Amino acid sequence: MLRDLFSKKKKYATIPSEQAKQEVPEGLMTKCPQCKSIMYTKELKKNLSVCDSCGFHHRLTAYDRMDTLFDEGTFIEFDQNIIAKDPLNFPSYKQKSEKDRENTGLNEAIVTGKGKIDGYPAVVGVMDARFRMGSMGSVVGEKINRAIERAIEEDLPFIMFAASGGARMQEGVFSLMQMAKTSTALHKLRDHGGLFVSIMTHPTTGGVSASFASLGDINLAEPKALIGFAGRRIIEQTIRQELPEDFQTAEFLLKHGQLDKVVERKNLKATLKTILSIHAPAEESEMNQEAAEEPAFKAEEQEVK
């Protein structure tokens, strides 16, 4: 018995060879950070980057978000080539920004433009957390301001997708000024009678949550999105109380009246269409209704023939 015990071969973990590693393409699989399930990246993207197992909403890039939102061929981008300066000569800021431009294909942490959602035109801004964690610097604030001005000029609704770590520390007070700048622009839009729909995604924090993101005529959010100003630990240390487990989640904010609705990504386009149709001019709403009913009418006509 002792001889058998010592004669057993030891099992060692095998290390994949470099050739074996190369046979598995990078990015083929994605692991869900919430339920830890592993899925094909292509399948995940087909499901709008929402986990089939637990419903976790993975982050979307700005252009992927546009693809899920706008009618094909209708999106026109604004102010694509504006690039931030380095007003404080902050160490490594230029180099890090250049690296983000290379990695993301974006010049800044936001994409703005206009397009149609099921036939209803709107101006939109979409933040991208891959660029400096979606932080709001002078260019982000300026692009939001210009987009709002276009919405006023063309009498269009303004839709904003927030995804940000807050104000951009490398620009100091210049970034903080964008809170007032964007809020003032939205006040002008409201005075003009325009509609502002704010959609908060994961995460929406800091100066962004404390300014334009919370000023929507209608405030929506994606499920389980982190939304808040200061971090949980800082708040607990300040008030010397333990916070609820779901504190600063979209569901918590909905329960306490800060949001109008938490909307799953698969239902977001339909929800926005409903909102835009309710607020659209009567003539435009009738035209879109006729366009939607036209195929059904033609089909009935063919059956009669």
Rank of each mutant, 00 (worst) to 15 (best):
G125A: 14
V173Y: 15
Y93F: 11
V111H: 02
L176A: 14
T112Y: 05
R150Q: 14
S138T: 14
T112W: 10
S97P: 06
Q170S: 15
V139S: 08
P91R: 08
Q170F: 13
K99C: 00
K94T: 10
N103K: 13
R168C: 11
V123P: 01
K99W: 04
A162I: 02
R150M: 10
E149D: 12
G119I: 04
E108T: 15
V139K: 04
E153R: 14
E154N: 14
I144N: 02
S138N: 08
D118E: 14
R101E: 09
S92T: 13
R101Y: 07
E149I: 08
G137Y: 02
L88I: 07
V124W: 01
F158C: 01
T112P: 05
S92K: 15
E142D: 11
M160W: 09
V123I: 10
Y120Q: 05
R168I: 03
K85M: 00
G134L: 00
E98W: 10
T112V: 14
M133E: 10
A122Q: 03
N103W: 00
P91Y: 11
G134S: 03
L106I: 04
R101K: 15
G105Q: 00
K99F: 10
I152G: 01
A129T: 05
R146H: 04
F131S: 01
T112D: 06
S97W: 12
M136D: 06
L88N: 12
G113R: 01
F131Q: 05
F90G: 01
F174E: 10
L156F: 03
G165Q: 07
G105V: 02
V140G: 06
G115L: 02
D86L: 10
L88Y: 11
G113K: 01
I83R: 15
K99S: 10
K96H: 12
Y120S: 06
L106E: 06
K114Y: 12
K94N: 13
N145K: 11
